[in-house]
Design a binder for these strands. Structure first.
Length: 974
RNA sequence: GCCGAAGUGGCGGAAUGGCAGACGCGCCGGACUCAAAAUCCGGUGCCCGCAAGGGCGUGUGGGUUCAAGUCCCACCUUCGGUACCA
């Protein structure tokens, strides 16, 4: 039995609960019940589940200064309903809440005002918590945590130490302790320092000097995922690429498992597709194009040396690492090798300098420098036309030995594949564009299907065909379908030691450090030499000395360089001496994603100071049974958390392969629908069909002429619908735009939950958010809709309460007698419907079923108490405050939170007769009453006996009669 | 461009291949009221008709089926994501 019930059990409700208050007044009853639940710890979850467990998790919020938004309670209400329902079904429910409290806004606020981020954060958390509690969610607040708590980030740092201590064993496809990493003999011979550097190069957490996305406006480096089209995701500031020492996490090692394990998860296919897309696994081949160690004046490989190379390769095998004599390329289309007419290197490719002929040196140097300084924004802007430069050198195509020119172009990315490609302009759109630009040969090697529209052009080298077909111009390989050819040529290349099958991912390693103050410090110390410079060696802060706390800073201002703010920390924090060796602390901090990667584990054992979680507790509660949150986290958060979870699994700290068994994304809530009209300068109306709103500057302009027009919000009563669109009543030729926009401060359409609760009550807000439509859909807000569900709650109240009485008393229609057969049928249909709808999270329809119940019983002047009680229990997960109040009024002295969920009785809903539609040629023509169990011939006869049907059948031939017993009858006639 | 989701009354939306529009909002009518609000009762897809009834109807065009909002093919529109990943 759940603890809350023991606490509340048998104890009479405080007398204050029976206030004089005949009208439904959420402003009084909601705070009262919230206090009751809190005082009695009604929703405290047991340490270990008793009976079946159910772990329901919300994506915890970032407590922003703006407070709660109506989008937050949508998911939270859904999870709350699930939890309250499950408790009534006898499950041990885990339902915690906490705060994703590190984050840039608090730090930026600190820069502006000098208020320490911790102070701002605590204030914001207090606001969020008040707002969540005002909505009556059944969280176990004893488990509350914030990622900024030292007791929490102590374990975030501890997990980092595990990542640091782990290498990925490709053969076993799992992470293993670094101590088990096989060290090559030559490294071992080179001494202890060499071994340490070798290990450092294989850890899941490693440092890299790679170019990063530096955003001067935000004063920080951003992850690739945080840069969209060359601008920062947050605030849309320009981003430039500069080199900086960074911490990286080797998530790419887990790419295969992250993709494969999606299969068993109960997530929507579209979210899985999003993740698969992001991981971007592709299969193809790596192929070596011979260039020789050094070319003659012609820039071409020496034929004799090339032949010798081929023989050597044929006798040996394809080397793991390419030597200096070849360009290794990656392709997904090895079947088009005969059509490879040139090779392209990324500007950052290590062979660029070596392969550049003297006469091309200036052009190449200029091009590469330009590419290096190009921001991502520039690259995106220039995406339309291809740029590149010829090196002057050639490589040998391994399948036909022909020399092909080597180019450099920034459409080839250094960070993907091998940083070099073979270009097949006839069958790759980008290569085609490039070849056209620079007049390079285009050789078709795939024949499209005979009926393809542009086949002739493709075969003439005038159009690109990226699809599958049959090989041509491919020597002895002609006439083979694409898929088969890929396999054959890959196998043949492998035999000759010139290629091998290969897999690539779009997913990159995770840039894991930020130049922030307000983040988790790394538990890392950098060794310093005598002059105070880093030696490149480091040591970890031992686990039992964690957490590494943040120092007190006096100033938070950005100093305009990528140096982290922690570099300005007091020396006492910054420098450490151990055994006579001086160290400097790592001054980068972890990104906001870190804390959210594992919070679902800590909730289960939030006070444990010996381990991040007690393994027995972990085993008992994991995995999360339902996880609900916004689709904006569909890729990053969920991928990162899954990655950490898998590492913890490999290292034996968790027992499940995946953390979140079922995932649901709630849809966005938009502002109220707005009608927008357009007026020209003179004030005369312009039809929306003549206005272009999606121009570069976002200002609406006339499609013809391009003059700016002003937008006017039009009240609904001046508008009517004509055909597909809304028009002005007075001027029906003037079309208006009707649509709901994303809530934003600038548009002024933000709905504040505090206002809604004040005017309608928390139960109304909860109910409305669920009644709007399917949980996963994007839906526009409507205050009239809130008023509508409030009307339902008022009606439910009056169905049970005598509103005209002086004090709180039952409606006289509520009687202690058995329900009639029909009343009982309605009740059990409601039980059945609500229960089924809850199971498929169709809360909107479950509410409409409760409305139907209320509509029916409202008309009854005798309302059996038992039916009313069952109704209150069904309503409880949705509108818990009202339900508790009515439950108490119906004479119960303890909370209904653990009352058994109403049981559906199939007998009760059985009817003697059923009304059956009768169709003729598929059109509804009549309805007939038949006994419930009627068989097909009986139904057919009953249909024929109907006067109207008989009339319509008279003189016609019945070709066929389709009868679905219990459902319908259809006559097919001639 | 590619990937994903969605197009149903005036609006939000409902419908295991089997009575399209449940439920709610809005609107119309009635009751109560001096009146209004609140509340209660009834009606409400569109067109024709006094009515009985009939016709049309789930983005568009085809198809499968006795029967299609639902399944298949092609397309249009909107929203979300993504962008030279070879």
């Amino acid at each position: 039995m759940a603890p809350a019930r023991l606490v509340a059990g048998g104890r009479p409700l405080p007398s204050s609960l029976h206030t004089l208050m005949p009208r439904y007044n959420p402003a009084v009853i909601e705070p009262k019940w919230q206090r009751f639940w809190s005082e009695h710890r009604t929703f405290a979850a047991p340490r270990m589940p008793a009976g079946p467990k159910y772990y329901v998790l919300d994506m915890f919020p970032y407590p922003s200064g703006d407070g709660l938004h109506v989008g937050h309670p949508e998911g939270y209400t859904a999870t709350d309903i699930i939890c309250r329902h499950r408790r009534m079904c006898g499950h041990s429910v885990m339902h915690p809440m906490g705060w994703d409290a590190f984050g840039l806004p608090a730090e930026q606020h600190a820069k502006r005002t000098g208020t320490p981020p911790r102070v701002t954060t605590e204030k914001n958390i207090a606001t969020f918590k008040r707002q969540l509690q005002m909505l009556g969610f059944s969280y176990d607040w004893d488990r509350e945590l914030a990622t900024t708590d030292p007791d929490y980030f102590r374990w975030t740092q501890w997990i980092f130490l595990q990542l640091f201590d782990t290498w990925f064993d490709r053969d076993q496809q799992r992470g293993r302790p670094i101590a088990e990493l096989p060290v090559p003999e030559d490294v071992r011979q080179a001494g202890e320092e060499a071994v340490r550097r070798f290990q450092d190069a294989h850890r899941l957490a490693y440092q890299s000097e790679a170019p990063v996305n530096w955003c001067p406006a935000l004063g920080t480096v951003l992850a690739n995922e945080e840069v969209i089209g060359g601008l920062s995701e947050r605030g849309s500031h320009p981003v430039v690429r500069i080199p900086l020492r960074q911490w990286m996490l080797r998530i790419t090692a887990y790419a295969d498992r992250l993709e494969k394990d999606l299969e068993g998860l109960d997530w929507s296919e579209s979210i899985k597709a999003l993740q698969r897309n992001w991981i971007g696994r592709s299969t193809g081949a790596e192929v070596d194009f011979y260039v020789g160690h050094d070319q003659g004046p012609s820039g071409r490989p020496h034929p004799g040396e090339f032949k010798e190379w081929r023989n050597q390769r044929a006798a040996g095998s394809f080397p793991d690492k390419p030597g200096d004599d070849v360009i290794r390329i990656y392709t997904t289309r090895p079947d088009t090798l005969f059509g490879a007419t040139y090779v392209v290197l990324a500007p950052e490719h290590r062979f660029v300098a070596r392969l550049t002929r003297p006469e091309q040196a200036d052009a190449v140097k200029a091009y590469c420098e330009q590419a290096q300084h190009k921001s991502d924004l520039d690259r995106t802007d220039l995406a339309r036309s291809k740029t590149g430069v010829f090196t002057g050198s050639f490589a040998a195509n391994p399948v036909n030995q022909r020399p092909v020119p080597i180019w450099i172009a920034d459409y080839v990315l250094a960070s993907y594949g091998t940083g070099a490609i073979m270009a097949v302009p006839a069958h790759d759109t980008r290569d085609f564009e490039f070849a056209r630009q620079f007049n390079l040969p285009i050789v078709p090697v795939v024949d499209p299907a005979a009926d393809a529209a542009d086949r002739a052009q493709v075969l003439a080298g005038e159009a690109v065909f990226p699809g599958d077909g049959v090989s041509i111009n491919s020597s002895s390989y002609d006439g083979i379908p694409t898929a088969e050819f890929k396999q054959r040529i890959t196998a043949d290349l492998a035999d000759r030691g010139q290629g091998r099958e290969a897999v690539n991912y779009k997913l990159r390693d995770w840039l894991f450090s930020r130049q922030h103050f307000w983040g988790e410090p790394f538990p890392i110390l950098h060794e310093l030499d005598a002059s105070g410079n880093r030696t490149g060696l480091m040591r970890t802060v031992p686990a039992d000395e964690l957490p590494v706390n943040l120092p007190e800073l006096e100033k938070f201002e950005s100093h305009g360089s990528p140096e982290p703010p922690l570099d300005q920390a007091p020396e006492s924090w910054l420098y450490v001496t151990i055994d006579g060796q001086r160290y400097k602390r790592e001054t980068n901090t972890m990104p906001q994603w870190a804390g959210s990667c594992w919070y679902y584990l800590r909730y289960l054992d939030p006070k444990n100071d010996k381990a991040l979680i007690d393994p027995a507790v972990e085993k008992a509660w994991m995995p999360v049974d339902v996880y609900i949150g916004g689709a904006e986290h569909a890729v990053l958060h969920l991928l990162y958390a899954r990655f950490w979870h898998k590492v913890l699994y490999d290292r034996g700290y968790v027992s499940t392969v995946e953390p979140f068994q079922k995932l649901v994304n709630q849809g966005m809530i938009l502002g109220e629908v707005e009608l927008t009209g357009y007026q020209a300068e003179g004030g005369e109306w312009v039809s929306a069909s003549a206005v272009n709103t999606s121009d570069d500057d976002g200002k609406p302009r006339l499609k013809l002429g391009g003059e700016e027009v002003i937008t006017v919000k039009v009240p609904f009563d001046q508008v009517t619908k004509s055909g597909e669109s809304f028009v002005l009543k007075d001027q029906p030729e003037i079309r208006l735009e009707s649509r709901a926009y994303k809530m934003s401060k600038s548009r002024g359409n933000v709905v504040n939950p505090d206002t809604v609760v004040r005017e309608y009550g928390a139960d109304s807000l909860r109910l409305y958010e669920m009644f709007m439509g399917p949980l996963e859909a994007t839906k526009p807000w409507s205050m009239e809709g809130v008023n509508g569900v409030r009307g339902f709650l008022d009606r439910a109240w009056r169905m049970i309460v005598n509103e005209r009485a002086e004090g709180l008393e039952l409606n006289a229609a509520v009687v202690d007698e058995a329900p009639t057969v029909e009343q009982n049928r309605i009740l059990h249909k409601t039980i059945q419907g609500v229960t089924q709808d809850f199971e498929r999270m169709a809360f909107n329809t479950s509410i409409s079923k409760l409305m139907e119940f209320t509509n029916y019983f409202f008309k009854c002047d005798r309302r059996p108490r038992a039916a009313m009680e069952q109704f209150v229990l069904l309503l409880a997960p949705l509108a818990p405050h009202l339900a508790e109040e009515l439950w108490a009024l119906l004479g119960h002295e303890i909370t209904l939170a653990y009352e058994p969920w109403p049981r559906f009785d199939p007998e009760a809903v059985r009817e003697d007769t059923a009304e059956i539609p009768v169709q003729i040629n598929g059109k509804l023509r009549a309805r007939v009453e038949v006994p419930t169990g009627a068989d097909a011939p009986a139904m057919e006869q009953a249909a024929k006996d109907d006067v109207r049907i008989a009339e319509l059948l008279a003189g016609k031939t019945v070709v066929k009669c389709v009868v679905v017993p219990g459902r319908m009858v259809n006559f097919v006639i001639k």
